[in-house]
Simulated scan of single mutants.
Amino acid sequence: MDLKETDILGADIGKHWYYRSKARAMEHLLCGVTPSIILDVGAGSGFFSRKLLSNTSAKQAWCVDISYEADSETLEAGKPVYFRRSVDQVDADLVLLMDVLEHVDDDVGLLNDYVKKVPRGARFLISVPAFQFLWSGHDVFLEHKRRYRLNQIEDVARRAGLKVKYGSYYFGAVFPIAATIRLVSNLARSNQLKPQSQLSRHHVVINEILAAMSAVELPIVKINRLAGLTAFCVAEKA
């Protein structure tokens, strides 16, 4: 999760349709998984691990991000959250990498590094932006290196030493709208894509419509291998 987006939305991040919907998709993808200790890599504010602490029996979360100025600790739902710039070994049974791998040159190497830090049997939930043809100024603003097709992020997981359970796209309902806006915008700007965030606070009606469109997908979130703005991969350390 990028701290630049946290800065834009501030305390309203939990109300924004995109993050609200992604958190619900995460919970559906982890249905049946009962985590105890969460390792949240590139966690930013810890939005996603905090959601799991509030809504599941998870006992604690370790949030790792090189952007933190210093190590710190807090509580979420009475449970400890440890913010660290780095960690060595964590006895985590769930590892989150929510929109992280697209930021680094060596995505396989980073993922493998965290595979080594957790016990066998640990579940990994990875999300990345989907489809390179959707590249825009928003990607430049967030300092992305690439976007992924589903088979590409699954290949990264396997090469990092994980066994892929399943993968899927999400935000398929809003995909045609977003794709049209990005492609038209890119054509208008030719090859000069300026860093510009496309994340903004919407009118409450628009926000709820987009959230409702995304919620319609939840029953099929595990099987959508056709299209979406986000690619998810659920894997396990064998």
Results as ranks from 00 to 15, higher is better:
Lys4Asn: 04
Leu9Ala: 09
Gly10Arg: 13
Ala11Ile: 06
Ala11Pro: 05
Ala11Gln: 14
Asp12Glu: 15
Gly14Asp: 12
Tyr19Gln: 00
Ser21Asp: 05
Ala23Gly: 09
Ala23Trp: 08
Ala25Asn: 06
Leu29Val: 04
Thr34Val: 08
Thr34Asn: 06
Ile37Asn: 03
Ile37Lys: 11
Leu39Gln: 02
Leu39Asn: 00
Asp40Thr: 01
Ala43Pro: 00
Ser45Asn: 10
Arg50Pro: 03
Ser54Gln: 10
Ser54Asp: 05
Asn55Ser: 14
Thr56Cys: 10
Gln60Tyr: 01
Trp62Ala: 01
Ile66Cys: 09
Glu69Leu: 12
Ala70Gln: 07
Ser72Pro: 09
Glu76Asn: 15
Glu76Met: 12
Lys79Asp: 07
Phe83Arg: 10
Ser86Met: 10
Asp88Lys: 01
Val90Cys: 02
Asp91Phe: 05
Asp93Thr: 01
Leu94Tyr: 02
Met98Tyr: 02
His103Asp: 03
Leu111Tyr: 07
Asp113Tyr: 13
Tyr114Arg: 00
Val115Lys: 00
Val115Leu: 04
Lys116Thr: 10
Lys117His: 08
Val118His: 14
Arg120Lys: 13
Gly121Ile: 13
Phe124Ser: 08
Ile126Gln: 03
Ser127Pro: 01
Phe131Gln: 03
Gln132Asn: 10
Trp135Val: 10
Ser136Asp: 00
Ser136Glu: 03
Ser136Ile: 08
Phe141Asn: 12
His144Val: 03
Lys145Tyr: 07
Arg147Phe: 13
Arg147Ala: 07
Arg158Asn: 13
Arg158Leu: 14
Gly167Ser: 11
Ser168Gln: 08
Gly172Tyr: 08
Ala173Thr: 15
Val174Lys: 09
Val174Glu: 06
Ala179Glu: 04
Ala179Ile: 03
Ile181Val: 15
Arg189Val: 15
Gln192Phe: 07
Ser197Ile: 14
Gln198Cys: 05
Gln198Tyr: 05
Ser200Ala: 10
His202Thr: 03
Val204Leu: 11
Val204Lys: 10
Leu210His: 04
Ala212Glu: 13
Ile223Lys: 14
Leu226Thr: 15
Phe232His: 14
Phe232Gly: 02
Ala235Thr: 08
Glu236Leu: 06
